[in-house]
């Protein structure tokens, strides 16, 4: 990758160290202020969980890091969102390049109505990579990472829609991994899944943090406790508390946090 590229410049040597930062971030939808000024630094190669009641802005905040809010009507941002020190909302940023680096897994599994193979290969194909052998290797590799390979290796040409919900979600993660992002955003990735599939995905997240920085929005506090290193509690568009997960769950500083995690509201 050339240094002239107007995306995020990645130096291979520090590839596995990516820091997310926000400075005075406010988000507006028309006149409504959804995020009310947040300063935050998210550590590299850790799992950070965002928790909070519905409508607290945690999803909106998550989607800032790959600019998915750009498609929402009336969206407006104040402040800065930085990845490795570079403001990703400045004019010169190439959004497609950014999203290659910052992968996303959505709430509901959303595989393309294509074959399993083509789903995983999609991200590479849109970059103009069509070499069959390379694609096959990448697809196999990605499916192995999400422990789906053994289940689907004979059905690679079958439609991804035919998979179960849990398999679909793992496929969506594999699809994201195939383009080698450095950061993965997950927006309640298990909320539409059964407990068994949820357990598999959680296990997967635990393994993935070796290589990736993961930010996950979750409704499920037990999940946050199980898988994350850091937890951030959001309420009404504000970041109330942000600390090591253990600390936040056992000994929160703020009363609001304590009320939420002990189930007194939300």
């Amino acid at each position: 990758m050339s240094k002239k590229e107007k995306g995020i410049v990645i130096d291979k040597s520090i590839k596995r160290k990516h820091k997310l930062e926000t400075k005075g971030v406010k988000v507006f939808y028309d006149d409504f202020m959804a995020i009310k000024g947040i300063d935050m630094t998210i550590k590299a190669n850790k799992v950070t969980a965002f928790i909070g009641p519905s409508g607290c802005g945690k999803s909106t905040f998550l989607r800032l890091f790959n600019r998915m809010n750009d498609y929402v009507d009336g969206f407006r941002l104040e402040g800065e969102v930085r990845i490795d020190g570079e403001n990703i909302y400045k004019k010169k940023i190439n959004v497609e390049q950014l999203r290659k680096q910052v992968g996303m897994v959505f709430q509901k599994p959303n595989p393309f109505p294509k074959s399993i193979f083509e789903n995983v290969a999609y991200g590479l194909r849109i970059q103009g990579i069509n070499d069959k052998r390379y694609l096959s290797e990448k697809v196999e590799d990605s499916l192995k990472q999400v422990a789906l390979w053994d289940e689907v290796k004979d059905d690679l040409n079958k439609s991804a829609i035919a998979l179960s919900g849990g398999q679909q979600q793992r496929l969506c993660i594999a699809r994201t991994l195939a383009v080698e992002p450095s950061i993965i955003l997950m927006d309640e990735p298990t909320s539409a899944l059964d407990p068994l599939s949820t357990a598999k995905i959680e296990e997967l997240i635990y393994e993935l943090k070796e290589k990736y920085s993961i930010v996950i929005v979750t409704h499920n506090m037990q999940q946050a406790g199980r898988i994350s290193d850091y937890t951030a509690f959001f309420y009404l568009g504000e970041l109330i508390e942000y600390d090591r997960t253990k600390k936040l769950f056992t000994n929160p500083e703020k009363q609001q946090t304590e009320n939420y995690i002990t189930g007194r509201f939300g």
Binding site: G7, N94, Q97, K100, I126, Q127
Partner: peptide, 9 residues
């Protein structure tokens, strides 16, 4: 010109 910029164009 790399692929991403070609795609943008």
């Amino acid at each position: 010109m790399n692929n991403i910029r070609k795609n943008r164009l």
